[in-house]
Amino acid sequence: MPSIMQGTTDNGLLAPVPDQDGAPFWRYTARGELRVQTCAACRVPRFPPRPCCPYCQSFAHRWQKMSGRGHIWSFVVAHPPLLEGYAQQAPYNVALVELFDAPGIRLVGNVLAAPDAPLGALDPARLAIGAAVRVTFTRVSGGFTLPQWLLEGP
């Protein structure tokens, strides 16, 4: 996994804690790029990042740039929030997005009403499994840039 969500930022929200394999993911998001670790031998994308390909056991990999488009594979609307830092933003969604250009690769994030909008600003009634989304990047305290999602179309 590119991060283990432990610790909090100065506003009480969860902060990524990158490991060695996932650190490049966070460097790319800081540049506004969505990239997925891909095996250099068999060319199969994998997420979460790891040292060895689970398909061909190669240790060679590269970070392939993604289009940033996908669809909502699943989602939940948090009521009530479990962590105090999220209470002001509830209800808010947490979505699992499957990438169009890497089927089977699913990333967790929030579907936002607009870039940098608060988590709870999107009407949950607008969410649907299968809805097309595109990536946006949100900088959070602690120096991280999170991939988040915007609905495509009406």
Rank of each mutant, 00 (worst) to 15 (best):
V94H: 08
S3F: 14
Q37G: 00
G12N: 12
V76S: 15
K65A: 12
M5Q: 13
A117L: 09
R106C: 08
L127K: 13
G22M: 09
R106H: 08
V94I: 15
R35G: 01
A90E: 08
R126M: 10
V17T: 13
A113K: 15
R35S: 02
L112Y: 09
W63I: 00
L13T: 14
C52Q: 11
L14C: 07
Q37I: 00
V44Q: 14
R106M: 11
L127A: 13
A87I: 01
A132T: 15
P16L: 10
A78F: 09
G85E: 06
P80M: 00
G70F: 13
A87G: 01
G7A: 04
G153W: 02
E33I: 05
Q88E: 12
H61V: 02
W149H: 07
P118T: 05
R31C: 09
F137E: 02
L127H: 15
D101K: 08
A41L: 06
S3K: 07
P51L: 04
A90W: 08
N93D: 13
V108L: 14
C39T: 12
T136V: 13
H79D: 12
G85R: 08
A60W: 01
P80T: 04
R106G: 06
F75C: 01
F75L: 00
T136W: 06
Y55H: 12
P124T: 14
Q6G: 05
V77M: 03
C56I: 14
V36P: 04
I72G: 10
Q37S: 00
R35W: 05
A128P: 00
V94K: 09
G68C: 04
G12A: 06
L127E: 12
L82V: 02
V44E: 14
R139Q: 14
F47G: 06
F100L: 11
N93C: 11
W149G: 03
P54C: 04
A87L: 07
R134P: 03
L107C: 08
P2S: 13
V111C: 11
D21G: 02
P124L: 10
C56N: 11
A121W: 11
D116Q: 13
R35Y: 05
H79G: 08
S74M: 03
L83S: 06
T9F: 00
C42W: 09
V36C: 11
V135I: 12
C52H: 12
G104H: 13
L119N: 04
R27Y: 00
G130N: 12
A78G: 00
P16W: 09
N11K: 14
E84P: 06
M66V: 00
P51E: 08
K65H: 01
F25Q: 10
G109T: 09
P16D: 05
L112S: 07
L150W: 09
L122R: 11
T8H: 05
L34N: 05
V77D: 06
G85P: 05
